[in-house]
């Protein structure tokens, strides 16, 4: 035993920490990343376990107990965060609202991620005409005002969860395309790509097993950014009355519903907005942290 440990420590001394150990150290040494990840995981658990965690039915109205204040403003524990203008339990609506935000963020980022990554990688790898077309499409997309187009399309097609997710997914691919294009261009010039080409690997194979793994860290960072972006946009659309429709418990919609009573019951607006802020902040912190953790050489 003794010899093994001496052997191990000797080995450590010669070779230094392994890449996995270094990664672990960077992850746990990065406060922003840790905080963001923990908050995001907690909110995801809350969203998944919503039926078991919510004290009440988020849709159940009670005209007898409308706009009861939260506990910290003199309310009772029956409704810890009070009730809204229809007497629905605010905490339960918040908990179910996490499902809407996270679902929209994740699926919209997935759709736009697939579209944008396909376009960006194709443009970066093939260059020439493909690149010109993709660059043109990115320019067109950037010129369109996102909020306005999303509002108009949702209004025409009717506000529902599917429509909102679809519209955001089809609109938010621009950053994926821009970043993936630039990353692919960098990676394409590396020796291992040339080596794969020389040994006759097929183009799909090069893209999937040489290019993709080496741009994956940038991709994950953009996924977090766009997820946050989609969540904020959904909230804004719902706030403007042209996103997810009532009685669905969307945080943006809750702010909008509380807006008219803001003068006397400001917590109706403050609570859902604060939760939204915390979720988006957590995702952004995690994204920024991921950028530092996966690419320490790019740290500014």
């Amino acid at each position: 035993m003794a010899t093994t440990s001496t052997h191990d420590s000797l080995l450590d001394e010669i070779s230094g920490p392994t890449p996995a150990q270094m990664l672990r150290k960077r992850i746990f040494g990065h406060q922003g990343f840790l905080i963001g990840a923990i908050v995001l995981i907690l909110l995801t658990i809350v969203a998944i376990l919503a039926p078991w965690l919510a004290p009440h039915d988020p849709y159940a109205q009670s005209l007898m107990s409308r706009m009861e204040p939260p506990v910290f403003l003199g309310g009772d524990w029956e409704h810890p965060l009070g009730t809204d203008h229809l007497g629905r339990d605010y905490l339960s609506r918040l908990i179910y609202g996490a499902r809407i935000s996270l679902l929209i963020g994740a699926v919209a980022a997935l759709i736009s991620g697939v579209i944008g990554t396909a376009m960006g990688v194709a443009a970066g790898y093939f260059g020439g005409k493909v690149d010109a077309v993709v660059t043109f499409l990115i320019n067109v997309r950037l010129a369109m005002p996102v909020v306005l187009v999303a509002l108009a399309v949702v209004a025409i097609l009717g506000g529902s969860l599917q429509v909102v997710i679809g519209v955001l997914g089809l609109l938010l691919w621009d950053r994926f395309a821009v970043v993936m294009r630039a990353s692919t261009m960098q990676v394409r010039r590396r020796e291992y790509v040339a080596a794969a080409q020389v040994i006759g690997a097929s183009t799909p194979r090069i893209l999937l097993s040489e290019i993709m793994p080496n741009i994956a860290n940038n991709l994950i960072v953009v996924v977090t950014l766009e997820m946050a972006h989609a969540i904020l946009l959904e909230a804004a659309l719902s706030f403007l009355g042209l996103g997810v429709q009532p009685p669905t418990p969307s945080w943006g919609l809750m702010v909008s519903e509380g807006k008219n009573m803001m003068l006397f019951e400001p917590w109706l607006v403050l609570i859902p907005g604060a939760v939204l802020f915390v979720l988006v902040l957590a995702i952004n912190l995690m994204g920024d942290g991921l950028r530092d953790v996966t690419a320490p050489e790019n740290r500014s």
């Binding site: 946050a228 904020l232 804004a236 403007l240 702010v255 807006k259 907005g273 802020f277 902040l281 912190l285």
Partner: peptide, 22 residues
């Protein structure tokens, strides 16, 4: 800058109204 990117603008606007206008 981190808070600014996470702040829902409609919420920020309402807070400013509550604080500075009301």
């Amino acid at each position: 800058s981190v808070a600014g990117q996470a702040m829902p603008s409609f919420w920020f606007g309402l807070i400013l109204i509550v604080v500075f206008a009301i």
